[in-house]
Structure formats: C-alpha cells, structure tokens
C-alpha cells in the first residue's frame, strides 16, 4: 500500500464500511458491472494500486478454537482506486482483477454523499441474493436432518 492513499476522511462508520466491503467481495462480477452501467453519472476512477492477484494464507485454530495454525493458501485479488478525491479499496477471493477494481470503485462511491445511495442499492441487492442463497441451502440441509424415533418392542 502506497503511503497516504487514504488521507481523506469519510463520514461512513468503519463498521458499515467493513460490512460493505465484505458484501462487495461476495458480489458477482456481473452485479458490479450492471450497477456501474446503471449509474446516471459515472465518475472517472483513477487506479492507485493493482488490480493484483496474490495469496492469503488461511489460518485455522487447533481443535477449532485453540492456537492458530496455517491451513493453506487461497488466491485473492485486490485493487485501489481514487475517485473524486476519495480512495476505495476492493479485495476478493479469486483472480478476477476487474471484479476487484469495480469493488474498489463502489467502496469509493459509498464514501461520497452524491453516490452513496446508488452504492447502497447495490449492497442491498447483493445482501438479498446472499441471504436467499443461504436460506435455501440451510433449508435443503435441514431436510436431511435425522428425526429419531423409538421402536416399541414386545407387548408392553
């Protein structure tokens, strides 16, 4: 990370931004592309870093909750852009550079009052899709839950 890339303060709460970046990481490339194409005014995004693909070493915990250990690596791609004076960061699993760049663009848009509503609409759309997929998966798994019953043996 080049020094001083995120000097302009944004009034978005860190917790909201963290959540937003997590959703942008789970966005599909086409969700990002469509949201970008749907913007009435598309500000110019100047690349600050990347997109670059690299590895993140995923850690687990011994016994599930103990000391960390290194489980194995995962591919990840990140990008940073400057847009109307604010810097956006995008990062996601995989090797899709354009997806990381667009995620960075929307991270920047979220920090600009003028564009935040459009970014929020995209985030709501992503969150809704993920919730739908998770719910369906959970319900499919629930259908495979074992219901035990007791066999009555003998007369009484």
């Amino acid at each position: 990370m080049a020094p001083g890339v995120n000097q302009i303060p944004s009034d978005i709460a860190p917790e909201r931004r963290r959540e937003a970046m997590g959703l942008l990481a789970k966005a599909t490339r086409s969700e990002l592309e469509q949201a970008w194409a749907a913007l009435p005014k598309r500000p110019e995004a100047e690349p600050v870093r990347g997109p670059e693909t690299g590895l993140v070493m995923v850690r687990g915990r011994i016994g599930g909750g103990g000391q960390p250990f290194n489980l194995g690596e995962v591919t990840a791609t990140r990008a940073s852009v400057r847009l109307q004076g604010v810097v956006g960061h995008g990062q996601a699993l995989g090797t899709d550079g354009e997806k990381a760049r667009l995620a960075a663009v929307f991270d920047a848009l979220l920090q600009l009052p003028e564009h935040a509503p459009a970014a929020e609409r995209l985030l709501a759309e992503i969150a809704e899709r993920i919730e739908g997929e998770d719910t369906r998966k959970a319900r499919e798994t629930a259908a495979t839950r074992v219901d035990f019953f007791t066999m009555v043996r003998g007369d009484d």
């Binding site: 670059e52 693909t53 690299g54 590895l55 993140v56 070493m57 995923v58 850690r59 687990g60 915990r61 960390p68 290194n70 489980l71 690596e73 995962v74 591919t75 990840a76 990140r78």
Partner: peptide
Amino acid sequence: LPRFGYSVPV
C-alpha cells in the same frame, strides 16, 4: 504469486 498476508483464523 506474492503473499498478501495471513487471514484472521477462520
């Protein structure tokens, strides 16, 4: 590939 870092434990 370069190493970006270590994840928070899953």
